[in-house]
Computed example of a mutant assay.
Amino acid sequence: MKILTLNTHSWIEEAPIEKFELLLDHLFTEDYDVIALQEVNQRLDAPCIKFPMTFCQVEHQVSLRADNFAHCLVERLREKGLSYYFGWQMSHIGYDIFEEGNAILAKKPFVAEAITVSPQVDPHDYRTRVNLVATFVTSSPKKIASCHFSWWETKTKGFAVEWEHFVQRCVSNSQDVIVCGDFNNPALSEGYQQILESETLRDSYQLAKTKQGEATILKKIDGWEQNTTPLRIDYIFVPDKTVVTRYQRVLDGEHSPIVSDHFGIQIELEK
Rank of each mutant, 00 (worst) to 15 (best):
V243W: 11
A208N: 07
C48R: 03
S91Q: 09
R249M: 12
G94S: 12
S118Q: 08
V40G: 01
I195N: 02
T216V: 06
E100I: 04
L64G: 01
T200V: 14
L4V: 00
D31G: 04
F166L: 06
Y192F: 14
C72S: 10
A145P: 06
I217Y: 10
A106V: 11
D25Y: 00
R78Y: 13
P109L: 08
Q194L: 15
E153R: 05
V117P: 01
S256P: 04
E13G: 02
W163C: 06
A112P: 07
A145H: 04
V40A: 05
G191L: 10
D67H: 02
P239H: 11
H124S: 11
I217W: 07
I104C: 10
N7S: 13
K220P: 08
W11Q: 09
F86A: 04
L44R: 13
E164S: 10
H124L: 09
E30M: 08
A103V: 10
G87R: 03
V74H: 01
K211A: 15
G191R: 01
N131G: 09
G264N: 04
D33Q: 08
Q89N: 15
Y85V: 08
L27D: 04
E162W: 03
K211R: 12
L207D: 02
T138H: 06
I217M: 09
H148L: 07
K241T: 12
A215M: 06
D45H: 07
H165W: 11
V250C: 11
Q89W: 10
T128Q: 04
E164M: 13
N7P: 12
D222W: 15
L22G: 03
G158T: 05
V167N: 08
Q120L: 11
V34P: 03
L251I: 07
W152A: 03
F55P: 00
Q61L: 08
A106K: 03
L77V: 10
T135F: 00
I267T: 04
L188G: 01
Q89R: 06
K2V: 10
V34T: 09
F237D: 07
A36D: 11
K142P: 05
L188V: 10
I178Q: 03
H60Q: 15
F98E: 07
Q226G: 03
T156S: 15
L73M: 12
I3S: 01
Q120K: 07
Q206R: 02
E99F: 05
N184W: 04
L4F: 02
I221T: 14
D125I: 06
L4G: 01
H92C: 07
G223L: 13
N7F: 08
Q193A: 15
S198T: 09
W224Q: 06
G213Q: 06
V111P: 00
T200W: 14
I104V: 14
